[in-house]
Simulated assay, not measured.
Amino acid sequence: MVSRLEGIDYKTNSPIHVYMENGMITDIQAIPDMQLDSLPILAPGLIDLQINGYKGFDFNTLPFSADSVIQVTRALWEEGVTTYFPTLITNCDDSIEQAIQTIIKACEKDRLTDSTIGGIHMEGPFISPEDGPRGAHNEKFIKAPDWSLLKKWQKIAKGRIKILTLSPEWEGAIAFIEKCSKNDVLVSIGHTAATNEQIRAAVKAGARMSTHLGNGAHLLLPRHPNYLWEQLANDHLWACLIADGFHLPLSFLKVAMKAKGTKTILVSDAVDLSGLDPGEYRTHIGGDVILTAEGKLHLKKNPELLAGSVQMLKHGITHLVNNQIADLSEAWEMASSRPAALIQLATKNGLVKGAPADLVLFKLKEKNIRIIETYKSGRRVYPCKAQ
């Protein structure tokens, strides 16, 4: 059955009809003589390559159930997210295995969850053990890249580990990266204290992305050379940025976008407190933390030390737009078609005929994005009474 959506094209600012059938966009037609202010904006669904948890649920706090993963997936539709990558951080091997198993169970149990989870992002344990680059990762579980271990995890994941964040400073890292690249695992440089030479070698071996560039780093760095400049300068690396207004200053966002151009991507890197009310919480990593009304999550003892990100992709988009760093269409593509292009998802061409009907209708209200409807494979998943 053919269904139709009506809205303002996020890119051309023109009113359009989008026709959908069998989960795909079958046609896009202009609407003549339509009042723009009566229509929502129509855009491709958002894609989050790095999300640790949402609304009190944490992919890294075990045990958790397949039903919890399904509930998180449905909650993310409310945020306009139609594809996401559950992110597992450094932990003991058994805990990582258990988390992978549960995510895969959720995918096997629920078809829409299966189609919404684009893959698993492994952020560690093959990262730098140094204070600063290590971030909040537990030093006890950090180790050198281990191909046999990754193969074991990938078997449990049934091939769905798609992104691996590591530091190329380890002995054997380059050969490991080459194997990942040949086996459909995108390697991202992050939580690193690597030298410029090690970063260049990693890129030559197949590394293609920088994980939350500008964060997970030493507090003090040499003016030059340093690993931030090296990653910014490398034309082969895509850069993921957290644009929540707290993790990176506007100047860094602006420079990174100029350096990377269309290879700039937004991620939320959201933790489990995202989507909860402001207040005081206790977490398994940061201890006592404060979530402010402005959306800043910091340690209770030191407001200057962040305890993670709680802002979703739509906030990152408006942060760039409201500060005139990007227009709406560019900022939206940084969180939709660009990550799709990097991962080679079928939605990489965005809002075009023949693309999957992963779509969002939204309105801008007081400089914020309000999601009206979300469609996954042509099916309205938010709002949805069946939820």
Rank of each mutant, 00 (worst) to 15 (best):
L112V: 00
Q311L: 14
G214L: 06
I25E: 07
H236R: 11
S274H: 02
P339D: 09
V185I: 15
T211W: 03
D146P: 09
V203H: 03
L49Y: 04
I103K: 04
P129F: 15
S210H: 02
D288P: 09
K301F: 00
G286S: 15
K151I: 14
V72P: 05
K11E: 12
R380V: 01
E333Q: 12
H137G: 13
K55L: 05
R338G: 12
N234A: 08
A341V: 01
V321W: 01
L253A: 10
I104A: 05
R379L: 14
R200W: 05
S181F: 04
K260M: 06
A326D: 01
K258C: 07
F59G: 03
Q324F: 01
S181R: 10
T61S: 11
P32Q: 11
I189R: 14
S95K: 13
K300T: 02
E333Y: 00
F126V: 12
F59K: 03
F176T: 11
N215G: 10
T87A: 08
F126I: 06
Q324M: 03
A205P: 01
I117M: 07
G295P: 05
F59E: 02
P249G: 13
G80C: 01
D277Q: 14
W153E: 07
M312L: 14
A106C: 07
Q50K: 08
E178Q: 15
N22W: 04
I127S: 10
K143G: 10
C240I: 01
F362P: 04
W238M: 01
K300C: 04
K140Y: 09
L112Y: 08
S14I: 10
G354N: 11
E294C: 02
S274D: 05
I290A: 02
G124P: 09
I372G: 00
P44T: 06
K182M: 14
Q154H: 11
G316E: 01
D9C: 12
N183L: 06
F141L: 09
K258F: 06
L345A: 15
E123D: 12
L351Y: 08
I372H: 00
L76S: 02
E123P: 04
C107P: 03
F64L: 04
G172W: 11
G56M: 01
R74T: 00
I265W: 04
I177H: 07
G190D: 11
C107Q: 15
I343S: 06
P339H: 08
P383R: 04
L62F: 01
L266M: 02
E123Q: 10
F57T: 02
K376D: 01
I25K: 08
Q344Y: 05
S148T: 14
I265V: 13
P222T: 12
G206S: 04
D27I: 05
V203R: 04
L49K: 06
H191T: 15
L248R: 04
L213K: 05
D9V: 03
D244C: 07
